Computed example of a mutant assay.
Amino acid sequence: MSRITVLGLGAMGSRMASQLLAAGHTVTVWNRTPDAAEALVKQGAFHARTPREASAGAEFVIAMLRDNDASRHVWLDREIGALSGMAAGAIAIESSTLTSGWIQELGTHMQHARVALLEAPVSGSRAQADARQLAYLAGGEEEVLERCLPLLRVMGSSVHHVGGLGHGALAKLATNAMLGIQVTGLAEVIGLLERNGADASRVLAAMAGTSVWPPVAAYLSGSMMTENFAPQFPVALIEKDFGYTLEEAGSAENAPTIAAAHNVFQRAATRGMGDRNMTSVVRLFTEKRD
């Protein structure tokens, strides 16, 4: 069994730590708000006060954080940063959804500290994390990935090596962009059907029998039609990811469809939907207006 640190105990990080504990690993956790660690401590985790303290003695340090700024602070802060607590030869696993440029920069810092970096963002949400069905989109050296595989397979059902450092970030952003485009497309279609007096549920059921219906559409449309907007992937987070995707694209002109979908999530966020599930954007198209 390995000594593992998990930094960031949000919806995904807490579930990853729980799976590692269940598999018998020694797990130390840290979160910006300490209360988030209480349930994991009851399961047997150790709680550290800072990322630096948490990473001391760890063979693997996994981060699941909100964005580039949080990643930079947690890894590199001069006083409390995790990298300053890691021993040479340890492995850092960055599972947050970030930009490729930041991942490459972080890799340089890790190299100087003689710490290996694997980027391992995941596709999947809370249900997949609970069921150990996350799909990893890994970037980095194959040798480093091989050393991490036993841990990743505790939390996920598939691991895809997509290239060097930065390519995992691109793969994750591309995946989320495709998901978000499907969300906005379905939301617009439902609004179109309802405004024209059609039975949206019946039409969607018919569409589900055609080749245009992707597997995720059953969940997305079901959430929209029942207005079940409990956060699995909140609007605020996917809006952030779309911003990163457009940054990678270079301009909205290079990715006009992605830019249009981004605009939908921005509108939803300004209307107070940021904490709701991404599928709540359907209300932009179905709510009656005077």
Rank of each mutant, 00 (worst) to 15 (best):
A58T: 00
R72L: 11
R66K: 07
M86E: 10
I91H: 03
G89K: 09
E79F: 05
I62D: 04
A88S: 15
A37F: 06
G57E: 04
I93Q: 06
L83T: 13
G44L: 02
R78Q: 11
A90R: 08
E38H: 11
P51K: 02
M86S: 13
E94Q: 14
E53G: 09
L83H: 10
R52Q: 15
A45C: 01
E38C: 08
W30S: 01
H47Q: 15
E94S: 09
A70F: 01
V27T: 08
D77P: 08
V41Q: 12
L76W: 07
N31R: 06
L40I: 04
S95D: 02
D35K: 13
Q43P: 02
P34W: 09
A87C: 09
A58K: 02
L76V: 08
A63I: 03
R72G: 01
A36D: 04
A88I: 11
E53W: 03
A63S: 15
A63V: 10
W30I: 12
I80D: 11
I62A: 07
D77I: 10
D77Q: 11
A56P: 03
Q43T: 12
K42S: 09
P51Y: 04
A48H: 01
L83D: 13
T50M: 00
N31V: 12
E38I: 12
A36R: 15
R78Y: 06
A82D: 03
S96M: 10
A90S: 15
E59W: 00
E38Y: 02
L65R: 05
A88D: 09
S71A: 14
R66F: 13
I62M: 11
P34D: 10
D77G: 10
S96D: 06
W30V: 11
L40Q: 04
A54I: 10
V27G: 08
N68K: 06
A39K: 02
D67C: 05
P51H: 01
E59Y: 00
R66N: 10
A54S: 11
T50Q: 07
A48V: 06
A92M: 12
W75T: 04
R49P: 00
A70L: 03
R52S: 09
